[in-house]
C-alpha cells in the first residue's frame, strides 16, 4: 500500500531541493536564508543609539505636527537624548504653541525654539530643538559679531561654544533628510562636520521605523580622518 503522506512529504522535499538548486545556480539565496543572514549581520553589529538626532524636512507637505509629536515619543522610548527638528519652511515654528503643550502634558521633554528655551523640566528625558532657517548661516553671522567684539583670537572651539550657548546648536550624530530632495536646505552648516545622513521618504514616527533608522546608523563606519 502506498503511503500518501510519505509521497506528499517526499514531493515537498523534492520541490524544496529543486528550488534550492535553482537559487544556488542563479546566485540568489532563498528568502529564509536572506532573513537569517540579515539577522546574523545585525547580531554582529553593535546597536549604537545616536545621542543627538536631527531631522531636516526637505518637502513642505511632509511637515505634520501629529507625526512630529509621535516621533518625539518614539525618541524618548528609544533613549535618544536630543532631537533637532529643522524646518526651512517655518511650519513648525508657526505651531510651536501646540508642540510646547505636548511637551508639557504628554512627553517629558525640554523645548527650545530657535535657541530660546520655551519649556524646561529638570527631569526631562529629551531635549527638543525646533529650528528655522534663521538658525542657518544667520546664526553664524551673529556668532561672528559676538566674537569680533572680543580681543581674543577666534578658534573653532570658541565658535562652537558661542553657537551652543547663544543658539543651543550642537553637532547631531545622525541627520534624517525627510523627503526625496537631496539637499540640506541650509541646515546650520557649522554643526554638520561628521554627522551621518540618511534619506527617508517620510518621518519615521513609529518606534519600529525609528529602530530601522537607528540600525542603519549603527552600521555606519565613523573614522574622523583616520
Amino acid at each position: 500500500m502506498i503511503d500518501v503522506g510519505w509521497i506528499c512529504v517526499a514531493a515537498v522535499r523534492a520541490v524544496y531541493w529543486l528550488v534550492m538548486l535553482v537559487c544556488n545556480f542563479l546566485g540568489y539565496s532563498p528568502l529564509w536564508a536572506q532573513i537569517a543572514m540579515k539577522n546574523r549581520k545585525m547580531e554582529n553589529v553593535r546597536i549604537r543609539i545616536p545621542s543627538h538626532l536631527a531631522v531636516c524636512f526637505t518637502e513642505k507637505r511632509l511637515v505634520d505636527l501629529s507625526e512630529v509629536i509621535q516621533m518625539m515619543d518614539s525618541c524618548v522610548s528609544a533613549g535618544i537624548r536630543q532631537l533637532s527638528l529643522y524646518d526651512p519652511y517655518g511650519e513648525l515654528v508657526g505651531q510651536i504653541g501646540q508642540i510646547e503643550q505636548a511637551c508639557r502634558l504628554f512627553i517629558r521633554a525640554d523645548l527650545f525654539c530657535d535657541g530660546e528655551c520655551l519649556h524646561s523640566n529638570g527631569l526631562a528625558n529629551l531635549q527638543v530643538n525646533v529650528l528655522s532657517r534663521k538658525m542657518g548661516k544667520t546664526a553664524l553671522v551673529e556668532a561672528c559679531k559676538t566674537l569680533c567684539r572680543e580681543d581674543e583670537k577666534i578658534t573653532t572651539e570658541r565658535v562652537s561654544k558661542i553657537l551652543e550657548e547663544k543658539f543651543h546648536l550642537s553637532d547631531p550624530d545622525f541627520l534624517l533628510q525627510i523627503g526625496s530632495v537631496p539637499t540640506l536646505c541650509g541646515y546650520p552648516p557649522w554643526n554638520l562636520r561628521i554627522t551621518e545622513f540618511l534619506q527617508s521618504p517620510r518621518l519615521p514616527c513609529s518606534r519600529r521605523a525609528l529602530d530601522y533608522c537607528v540600525e542603519a546608523f549603527s552600521q555606519r563606519d565613523i573614522r574622523v580622518g583616520k
Binding site: 562636520r193 561628521i194 551621518e196 563606519d221
Partner: peptide, 20 residues
C-alpha cells in the same frame, strides 16, 4: 558609500544638491 560631509565646504554647500 559614506553619507557625510566630513568637514568639506559646509558653508558653501549648505543649499547645494548633495549626491552620494
Amino acid at each position: 558609500g559614506e553619507h557625510r560631509l566630513s568637514d568639506f565646504l559646509m558653508w558653501q554647500a549648505a543649499d547645494t544638491h548633495v549626491y552620494f
